[in-house]
């Protein structure tokens, strides 16, 4: 009897007042503060705008959103749960359940767009297309291979950061493009909520990757870094084909590729690595940047000396005792 009770595992309750890693609480707070549902966005205001798109533009948009739905589905049902098994703190597991659920919200959101704007038959066609498109299926397979239970915890995290911080962007480009032309602006608002969430997910998983990596001996660290760059290039190869197939008819492929390079470098930075693509091919169309972060570029480049960039903030009373932000 005593022998049995000695080896019985102790079930542990998560105590948020005893943290092993403060980043867990920081990210939990950020993710829960950012919680949203698609019902928050008045998608029906885009009905007229949708009707103004040409049939091929509508088809492209539905396909792109179906491709994004697939990635969100993978991250919701396989990716985030796979990372849970490797969590090093109970709080990390809790954060990952939030990430998994928000991916389900994202996947569900595209269906809200579809049911508001599109005909059922067109949407069914696009879902069939997503199952038959070789590039989309190939990149899903590459990621799913790394989510396999036998894969190393570090490689799972790399695949996950690449999905969150790189693979989505061939799709995110299109609603930002429409929005820069004052089209589907409510849909773009919804996509921006998704884009914001993915930034936190990529950052957090990348942070956990860095913590795990620094515990490895030098030789293994080098091997993991090689793996990361190789996987990125494999995914990039598939992304270029996918991008060409989708965007060539609109003449947007080169523009999208700059956006891909820019985001691939950011994904690598989330992992603590330097960028891979030279800056000259990461020059994202300013209209897309402005669509991504409206108003974010005002008054900050003092160094460039351009125009009215030097604006001292309006005087705000500052108390020494309590400087509350």
């Amino acid at each position: 009897m005593t022998i049995h009770s000695a080896i019985k595992p102790v079930a542990k309750a998560v105590n948020w007042n005893r943290l092993q890693d403060e980043k867990d609480l920081e990210i939990w707070n950020r993710l829960t503060a950012n919680f949203w549902l698609p019902e928050k966005v008045p998608l029906s205001n885009d009905i007229q705008s949708w009707a103004s798109l040409k049939p091929e533009e509508q088809q492209l948009t539905i396909r792109v959103f179906t491709g994004l739905t697939l990635l969100d589905t993978i991250q919701n049902t396989v990716g985030a749960p796979a990372l849970m098994a490797d969590a090093v703190t109970p709080h990390e597991e809790a954060v990952l359940t939030n990430i998994a659920f928000m991916e389900a919200v994202h996947a569900r959101s595209y269906s809200s767009v579809f049911s508001t704007l599109c005909r059922t038959a067109e949407v069914d066609d696009a879902f069939r297309w997503s199952e038959e498109n070789e590039h989309l299926q190939a990149k899903s397979r590459l990621i799913l291979e790394e989510y396999n239970a036998t894969s190393s915890p570090l490689k799972k995290k790399i695949a996950s950061v690449f999905l969150e911080s790189f693979l989505f962007y061939s799709g995110f480009y299109l609603p930002m493009h429409w929005s820069s032309r004052a089209k589907l602006t409510n849909t773009a608002d919804l996509i921006r909520l998704i884009i914001r969430d993915e930034a936190v997910h990529g950052y957090y998983i990348g942070y956990k990757f860095q913590r795990a990596l620094e515990r490895l001996p030098e030789a293994e660290r080098a091997e993991i870094k090689d793996f990361a760059f190789s996987l990125l290039l494999d995914l990039y190869g598939l992304e270029t084909h996918y991008t060409e197939e989708l965007y060539d008819p609109l003449g947007l492929t080169e523009d999208v590729k700059h956006f891909l390079h820019y985001n691939a470098n950011k994904a690598l930075q989330n992992l603590g690595f330097e960028g891979l693509f030279p800056e000259a091919i990461c020059q994202v169309n300013p209209a897309i940047m402005a669509s991504l972060s409206p108003n974010a570029d005002e008054n900050h480049d003092f160094f460039s000396g351009s125009g009215s960039s030097y604006v001292i903030g309006k005087a705000v009373a500052t108390e020494d005792e309590d400087w509350d932000f």
């Binding site: 470098n265 950011k266 930075q269 989330n270 960028g275 800056e279 990461c282 974010a296 008054n299 900050h300 480049d301 003092f302 160094f303 030097y310 604006v311 001292i312 903030g313 309006k314 005087a315 705000v316 500052t318 400087w323 932000f325």
Partner: peptide, 16 residues
């Protein structure tokens, strides 16, 4: 705004 000093520059993540 709080400290009445200029915001000189903004960059992303670890910068380019």
């Amino acid at each position: 705004a709080k400290c009445n000093c200029p915001c000189l520059y903004k960059f992303e993540l670890a910068g380019t």
